[in-house]
Design a protein around this nucleic acid. Structure first.
Lengths: 192, 192
DNA sequence: CACTAGTGGAGCACGAGTGTTCCACTAAGG
DNA sequence: CCTTAGTGGAACACTCGTGCTCCACTAGTG
């Protein structure tokens, strides 16, 4: 959306936001539910997104953009690899409902979807291999496993934040600590 | 199912297995798809499970039983806590499609579902706290975070196994290694 | 052969959700 | 005031999946 001002822009925004929220919980919810959540009539929703697929596509486009922006915010090329991974996790956690939708619903975030984030994925893998080359990260793991661990910790943290058993800040710290040392006791002083 | 013999038992089994497989991929698939997969007519499916809810309930009952059995197989009380966690991960990975369904579809594995596995959950938490008390596991983490990490690594490994990028054995080893040391490089020799 | 058990397919009614059309309403601007 | 922009609700047709009924078929047994 080049120009975000005006009634139409606000309405479209409201629909998209409501869609992400509702779809994160209930991927096959009715369009009327999304319309209700957005505070618009179903007719209006259809005016902006004539078919369900149009709405889903728009959510996809927005998802790609937001994930790209979140990755950029993490500045993976700066500082140590572990720090970069932590910044990335923190950046992604900020995406909240959107990330929930991506993680919890493989039908939406299918292969074609993740292919659009190939550049971001490569940047992450580059960061990981940089960390392995520098001796910071365990070189016996394939980079994609490390990437998967990061995402799985994000998944875990996100679930707990959604349940209210972790705060956003705790989640961030726990991911970092777990990346650094797994769950085994440290040979040295506690990191927390 | 007290008696697993006979045509009816085999048909019921076929339907349940097909349901788990298909539902893992497509939780809102049509009953006719499950019937096709099972190699039975839809009428037959309805004879065994008159309504969709009946089939879902049966899958739930089976899930609980299988998760209980898998937990029991892991013998969490034996050996070191880390070894116990690894055995549990391995045991759960053996459940394949069922575990996929549980992890990927929160609508099915809801709170009520997990409550039925409360005893198993407690056993796991007991094992974790045992490991923390003995100095094996990091005592600065809450036990439920450690439990969540285990499940999220399982989730990640399961995805990779399903995609064919990891073998079942590799998945098991990677989970173990990651639990022990996260993704940071070891101060000592590589564990692999 | 007749009977029983188990099954499959066809067809129907129903409900929920989707896409579409139409009309009425409100607010803002000239 | 009139016009335009934006919107909501009602109603309808359609599709898909579900639950249900009925009938026919096959296989096995006595």
């Amino acid at each position: 959306m080049a120009d975000e001002r005006g009634a139409r822009a606000r309405t479209r925004r409201a629909i998209l936001d409501a869609a992400i929220r509702r779809l994160a919980d209930t991927p096959n919810c009715a369009l009327s539910e999304i319309a209700d959540d957005a505070g618009v009539g179903r007719t209006t929703l259809h005016r902006y997104f004539p078919e369900r697929a149009d709405l889903i596509d728009a959510v996809r486009v927005e998802s790609v953009e937001r994930m790209r922006a979140a990755t950029a915010r993490a500045r993976l090329g700066e500082g140590s690899a572990l720090e970069a991974l932590e910044r990335l996790a923190s950046s992604y956690l900020d995406e909240g409902d959107l990330l929930t939708y991506l993680f919890f619903h493989a039908e939406f975030a299918d292969e074609a979807f993740w292919e659009q984030l190939e550049h971001e994925d490569e940047t992450l893998i580059t960061t990981i291999t940089r960390g392995q080359a520098s001796g910071e990260l365990d070189a016996s793991f394939r980079p994609d496993w490390i990437s998967n661990v990061l995402f799985s910790l994000l998944y875990s943290a996100l679930s707990s934040v959604r349940e209210g058993t972790l705060t956003r800040g705790e989640a961030s710290r726990l991911i970092g600590a777990t990346l650094r040392g797994g769950v085994a006791a440290r040979p040295t002083a506690s990191p927390r």
